Simulated scan of single mutants.
Amino acid sequence: MGRLSFPTLLAGFVAVLVGYASSAAIIWQAAAAAGATVSQIAGWMTALGIAMGISTLALSLWYRAPVLTAWSTPGAALLATSLQGSTLNEAIGVFMFSSALIVVCGVTGIFARLMNTIPHSLAAAMLAGILLRFGLDAFASLPANGVLCGAMLAAWLFAKALTPRYAIVATLIAGLLVCFATGQFHPADTAISPSLPAFTLPHFTLQSLLGIGLPFFLVTMASQNAPGVATLNAAGYQVPVSPLMTVTGLIALVLAPFGVFSVCIAAITAAICQSPDAHPDKNQRFIASAAAGVFYLLAGIFGGAIAMMMTALPQAAIQMLAGLALLGTISGSLYQALTHETQRDAATVTFLITASGMTLGGLSSAFWGLVGGGVCYAVLINLRKYYSR
């Protein structure tokens, strides 16, 4: 294994921090909608941390690529609004049904064949559209949090000019110092202690499987796995897609009775580990995702308490840290999307639809961005070929 440096370790930590801080509340709402108690929700967080840790470590070390896994945040949002009136047992049945469908996609290779048909420029444009919101949020929080965000931005700027590898390190330190100095660091009162996940017997009903399970599967694949694979491809890592789907689906299927509602290929947080800031050598960035796997396991050991501890930082600090950490990936994705002149229009359509945040038929803008860009790509390329004869 390559050498572990502090920026590489920090990239793994920031990836987990951003993942937990940005979506832990949504998972809480989804679990509560299914009727889970506080102790059961804490157990879910434990099981999720263990699932993400095992899958991230195994895939990163096996493929020697920065493969980061995550739960489906769009899927959790769907569950939070769809599980009202369902029992906890039915919710577990939905989790198992969706995970089984993902395993089928992996074993049959359907998802891999679909991803191979997507032009690289469109995948990069979709990634840029997904990440754009994080860049915008970073600077949108600046007016109301001038001291905190200004200090973090200044630290990043000077460090980027002098020691680029430690730019995010300086950003994090500056943010922590300002938070402590201004009293904006608010740790939760919850004791940090292990929360053992409890087994819940699944219950399958046709109504819950078709009404919740099928849309949950589609949202997870279109809004989480597709961008996750696109992120890997856009960063230059050609990892076999079918094994990724099979392994993550199987882990989620086995651990679903303990509250693991999904295990997916991460996109946004993975981009932090795939960035040059994580390691200048592209072939050594898997160490950052492996480090993230260890942090996932640590977060899992302490269950819900560690998730609440991570929210001690103000939202503005998390947004600024995430936005600056992803800045290089955003610019690199835009460059790759717009490099080929013949594909530029289709890539721009993909970028704009994805960045719009629109939803249609329960599917996210990332899915429709690929559809819209793909249609433009097919029409423009084929018509140009036809009339150039």
Rank of each mutant, 00 (worst) to 15 (best):
L255R: 04
G357R: 08
T117G: 15
Q184Y: 09
H120W: 11
Q274S: 09
I41Q: 08
G211V: 06
V169Y: 01
L4A: 10
F295T: 00
G109T: 07
A278T: 02
L206R: 12
S208Y: 13
Q238E: 14
Y335I: 15
A174P: 04
Q238T: 12
A124F: 04
A312R: 01
S141F: 15
V16P: 01
G332V: 10
A312E: 05
T37L: 10
G300N: 01
T348W: 14
I212D: 00
G357H: 10
L131P: 15
H120N: 14
M96H: 07
L232I: 06
N225T: 08
L297P: 00
M1Y: 09
S98L: 11
A167S: 12
N233K: 14
A36K: 03
A181C: 07
A346S: 11
V239Q: 04
I50A: 01
A140L: 15
F139A: 15
G372C: 04
S82A: 06
V147Y: 09
G85R: 05
I92N: 04
P66N: 10
A278L: 02
A337I: 06
I301A: 02
G374N: 05
I130E: 10
R64A: 14
L4P: 08
A34C: 07
A80Y: 12
T269P: 14
M245H: 07
L136I: 12
F261I: 06
M152L: 12
F185H: 09
S262E: 02
G129W: 07
L253H: 02
I272Y: 02
L157F: 14
F97A: 06
P187V: 00
M358R: 07
A271S: 11
Y335L: 14
S86W: 12
A123L: 13
L88A: 09
F217N: 00
P194S: 06
T163H: 14
A312Y: 06
P194M: 01
Q207L: 14
L244F: 02
V107K: 06
C105I: 09
A151F: 10
T190Y: 05
C105R: 04
A235F: 00
Q207M: 15
S208L: 12
P66G: 12
A24H: 00
T354F: 05
L122H: 10
Y237V: 11
V14D: 05
G75R: 02
H279N: 13
F139S: 13
S39T: 14
A31D: 11
C376P: 03
A32F: 07
I92M: 10
A288S: 10
V247D: 04
